[in-house]
Design a protein around this nucleic acid. Structure first.
Lengths: 203, 203
DNA sequence: CGATCAATCTTGACACCGTCAAGTTATTAC
DNA sequence: GTAATAACTTGACGGTGTCAAGATTGATCG
């Protein structure tokens, strides 16, 4: 637990806190993270973290923010890695990528898109910013797919983006929240969902 | 708070607890519910509830269970109320009904389909039962729609059911968790989602 | 270099929480 | 009427987030 203390001033406590918190959350879920345990974990007193984060909510926001950064990076790389792939397959790839991210980082995903921050807490301005940016990416891509004729353009881009995102999000939630869905079925479900969303190409 | 106490034995404490708990949750969310406040609320000591529910988890399960009962009842009524409606429109109606339920009872919905019980806690056997039954209904209906040719039969019924359910669930979560979605857009989003899921009729 | 100031970290305290153990009271079964 | 049992009580333990006030240190300026 308590690391050997050397100096009164820690040095880069903020960074250490974020790192330790991320680890704790990865191991035992968001609920396993308490400010006190966290402080003890980095070898500092209970209330020391409050000099770097206004409250627990702000800490969680910071972690979520890092999650968005990861997510955006992963997504941006996709089209570059597969430059000549048919849009339909690229879409499926994206869907699978999204789901895999949620599966690999369930707790981070929970923070990014869960009520803990967005409903019960208060998202930081910078968190709002990066998440908005993330959705913007999605929106633009949906528009591209509409233009390419593989997603319906009978409905506004915003609605199509919301509805398709909801599908991905729903899959991830069902999985991560432990409701019915088995992990082994994940890929297949993702493919089915992708197919159902795309299927109206001809319409 | 504390009601006037008449007898040592309350009489039907279990029922009173459920009722009060439901109210508290409706008012202030699941997090507003504490065993202590609940007990105080019905005029009984802190630990009295533990003679009727093993722990908080069991209480929540009981509430969720009631939610499923309501939900199933509402859904079952639908086809009867609109006996001669075209299946496509009936599907849209179902989608809207599902979303409206989640919108009208956000906290109950959260309990029914949230990680609080299914991942962090332990669903009661009877809760598992009724939720399974609920999904079974959905599954059967999806099959009907596949047979009627308005939902794809290129994928197994189970997968189509999961994918379409995920879409509804995702919409509800985005709404209830306070992520991006505006309540005013709800109906329109539901319709878009329904349309996208159904659109492959011709395929 | 020395004094000051602000940042950083500490201990103490408060009001909550879930729930276990042991004791009290009322109801039921014989 | 007595014994058993179910319902309910108080007391206690260890946990939580975070506020207030004090201690320590590094940085800044004369």
């Amino acid at each position: 637990m308590t690391q050997d203390k050397k100096t009164y001033h820690h040095g880069d406590l903020r960074q250490s806190l974020l790192q330790a918190a991320t680890q704790i959350i990865r191991d035992g879920g968001v609920d396993a993270l308490s400010m006190r345990k966290l402080a003890d974990n980095v070898g500092v007193s209970r209330t020391a973290p409050y000099h770097h984060f206004k409250d627990k909510n702000e800490l969680l926001c910071a972690i979520a923010e890092a999650g968005f950064a990861d997510h955006i990076r992963a997504v941006s790389e996709l089209p570059q890695q597969h430059p000549d792939l048919e849009p339909r397959l690229l879409f499926e790839l994206y869907v699978l990528g999204y789901i895999r991210f949620a599966d690999a980082n369930p707790e981070t995903y929970d923070l990014m898109f869960g009520k803990e921050i967005w409903k019960l807490g208060q998202p930081t301005e910078s968190l709002k910013g990066i998440s908005k940016c993330c959705f913007q990416h999605w929106l633009e891509w949906i528009e591209t797919l509409q233009d390419a004729g593989i997603l319906t353009d009978k409905h506004p881009t915003l609605r199509v983006a919301q509805a398709s995102w909801a599908t991905l999000h729903g899959l991830c939630r069902l999985l991560n929240d432990g409701i019915y869905v088995n992990r082994e079925d994940l890929e297949e479900m993702g493919k089915t969902a992708a197919a159902m969303l795309l299927a109206q190409a001809g319409t």
